[in-house]
Amino acid sequence: MGKSSKDKRDLYYRKAKEEGWRARSAFKLLQLNDQFQLFDGVRRVVDLCAAPGSWSQVLSRELYEKQQDTATPAKIVAVDLQPMSPINGVTTLQADITHPKTLQRILDEFGGEPADFVCSDGAPDVTGLHDLDEYIQAQLILCALQLTTCMLRAGGTFVAKIFRGRDIDLLYSQLRFLFDRVICAKPRSSRGTSLEAFIVCIGYKPRPGWQPTLELSKSTEEFFEGSGIGRATTLEHLELPEEERCVAKFVACGDLSSYDSDATYTLDENYQRISLDPVQSPTAPPYKKALELKRRGEMVRK
C-alpha cells in the first residue's frame, strides 16, 4: 500500500490504515459509487485483478454486510493471479482472467446466473514510457472486457482503470458499441499527477448475433471479431477511411469538501501519533520459503 515517503505523506494513505482498508484505492471505488450509485440493485459482483483486496473490502462492506439480513445477500467473487487474505463474504479465486475455466468457476459461484457488476482496478507495473504503459493497460482492459461480455447481464455495469492518452478515444468508441453510457471519471483520491482514471460503462447491451466465447487459442482481436465494435481484419493498404471517434464525458468524482490527494494538510492539535497494526498479514512473504528450507536443513550459505 505504498512504501515511498510520498505515499506516507498522502492523507488517503493514512486514512486507509486508520479505517482498515488494505489500500488507499478503496476510496476511489467509494467515490465512484457516490457519483454513479454503482451498487444499487446489485446482487452478483466480480472483482477482477483484485489483490490486495481493497475494492473487495468495499464490496463486502457496502453490499454483503448490508444485505446479510436479507433472503439473498450479495455474492462477491474476487479473481487474481496473486493470493489474497480472506475477506468476509468474498469468494477468492486465484486464477487467470483470460482462461475459460475461470469463467466457468465464476458462473458456478453464481449458480449459472450472470453478474450485475464487474470491476477491475488492475494495472501493469509501469515503465515510465507512457505510450507503452497506455498500450499495455488498454490490452488489460480488453482482457477484462472479454470475460465481462461472457458473464455480465444485459443492463449491467463495468468499471475499469484506464491510463488516459492521445488514443484513448479509440477504446471509448469500442466500449460505446457495448454500453449505453461510457464516462471517464477521476476520483479526488486519485492523484492529479497520475495518468490514471476510471472508465464507467453503464447499461450493457449484447451485440445482436454475436456470442462471446473464451478460447485459449483466440487472441483479443479474434475474440471480438464478428462483434462489429471495430476493425478486425488486416489492412492491405495504409489508406484508412475516417472513422467516428468518441470522446467520453469527463467527470471528477468526490465531494469538493473531501480531501485532495495532492494537497498537504495540517494535523489537528488533538491528533494522536500512534503506530497502527498491519491491515492484513503477508499472503506470500519472501521469507516463508527460506524458513522451510532452514527447517529441512537445506539452507546453505554459498
Rank of each mutant, 00 (worst) to 15 (best):
V247C: 10
Q57T: 15
S54Y: 07
L240K: 07
K161P: 03
K288Q: 12
Q174W: 03
L147V: 12
K218E: 13
D167A: 06
R166N: 07
P124Q: 08
Q31S: 06
P187E: 10
L142D: 05
R301T: 02
T72L: 13
Q211W: 09
Q104M: 04
A95R: 02
E292Y: 09
R191G: 11
K218H: 11
D268E: 14
D34L: 05
D169M: 04
P212D: 05
E269Q: 14
K17D: 02
S5C: 10
A185W: 02
T234S: 08
T70H: 14
E113I: 01
A252G: 00
L140K: 10
A78M: 12
T148P: 01
A154Q: 13
R181M: 01
L178F: 06
Q57R: 12
I76G: 06
P285Q: 10
E134V: 10
G53W: 04
G155H: 04
S173W: 04
D180P: 00
L293E: 14
A144D: 03
L30H: 04
E62P: 04
G254P: 11
Y12E: 02
K218Y: 09
P286N: 11
S120T: 04
L267S: 14
T148G: 00
V182D: 05
Y172W: 05
P278L: 06
Y271S: 04
I274W: 05
I162K: 00
A232S: 15
L48H: 07
L293N: 12
A248H: 01
Q211P: 04
L147K: 00
A284K: 15
E298N: 10
L30V: 09
D169F: 11
V182L: 02
T98Y: 07
C119T: 06
D133W: 00
C246I: 12
C143Y: 06
E109V: 03
G155A: 05
P212H: 07
Q31F: 04
T233V: 15
V118L: 06
E243R: 09
K17R: 14
G230F: 14
D169Q: 07
